[in-house]
Nucleic acid binder design. Structure first.
Lengths: 150, 150
DNA sequence: AAAAATGTGGACATACAGGTCCATAAAGGC
DNA sequence: GCCTTTATGGACCTGTATGTCCACATTTTT
């Protein structure tokens, strides 16, 4: 299916959670907050650490926290840290279909559209994700209030 | 990686080959012409037959041929025959990221862009692919001639 | 120094896409 | 009717994404 990998989705959710705190968070807490399986999350965190996105500390009072400000980390950066440089494929029809890039009926279309996707992923930062989540939670809260819940 | 699956790419290449002939072609001939592993191609053909895109005949003088005119078969049709209805995902960040579709920072962007991709895949027919290939081969031939090859 | 807490790295398990193989069914030629 | 040809369906293999587990290293607390 045409979308970013599940693991990248996990990474974004986890980071959005980590970035709300200014102190180290435990893998298990991030796991339950972001809904990512804890052992798998531990693996994802290792890749994010290798990419310099988070720092991790072992032992008592240890945990995971951001290594850089959330506003400086784009979804593209996260995706590439997880899936590699070719996050957005060179060709819509896959690399097997056109080894020679220009020899593809979708070349012109994908040159424009693929670049548009890359730039959207580059434009959106972790800070944007957090702001969006907060805004969305607020709106959902208002809606609940309006319906007389709680 | 963000692109159609390898199998879908194989299917398009194979169909582009099948559609150039008006008689049944053998799996092994399509295989060598399209560069798709023969046993795997046989599997792909079965799915295309189930989708009513090609018809196949067994035994002597058998083979595979189009069941419908190439101009009436879009890349979207082919992709959905291979990968299912959700060829272009509902969300750029994957279904795990946003169960509630509107609760996604890329929602507005992807609504537009995903639809644009779908419509491009729907616009391009097998006949277009064939025309493109022919045109491309012609241009390549001219370029070779110009360089004094053969 | 010992104990407790917590990420690390690697081995292993599972699921699915990609790919191979073979016995069989169907179709044509004799 | 029999032989050859060719797709068919299913079993099986391989590789990669996803997911689990555990012994170990590191850090803090006592």
């Amino acid at each position: 299916m045409l979308s970013v990998s599940q693991t990248t989705g996990y990474a974004i959710k986890a980071l959005a959670c980590i970035a709300t705190q200014d102190k180290p968070l435990l893998i298990r807490d991030i796991s339950s907050a972001a809904g990512v399986p804890a052992p798998y999350l531990a693996k994802i965190v290792r890749r994010l650490r290798a990419a310099g996105i988070v720092s991790a500390k072992r032992g008592h009072k240890g945990g995971v926290q951001m290594a850089r400000p959330p506003a400086s980390i784009s979804l593209l950066t996260i995706g590439e840290a997880i899936e590699g440089e070719e996050l957005v494929g060179n060709c819509l029809l896959g690399k097997v279909f056109c080894e020679d890039l220009t020899a593809c009926p979708t070349y012109t279309f994908w040159k424009k559209t693929g670049e548009s996707i890359r730039s959207e992923l580059d434009r959106l930062s972790l800070a944007d994700i957090i702001a969006f989540n907060r805004n969305h939670a607020r709106k959902a809260g208002r809606a609940q209030k309006k319906r007389g819940i709680k």
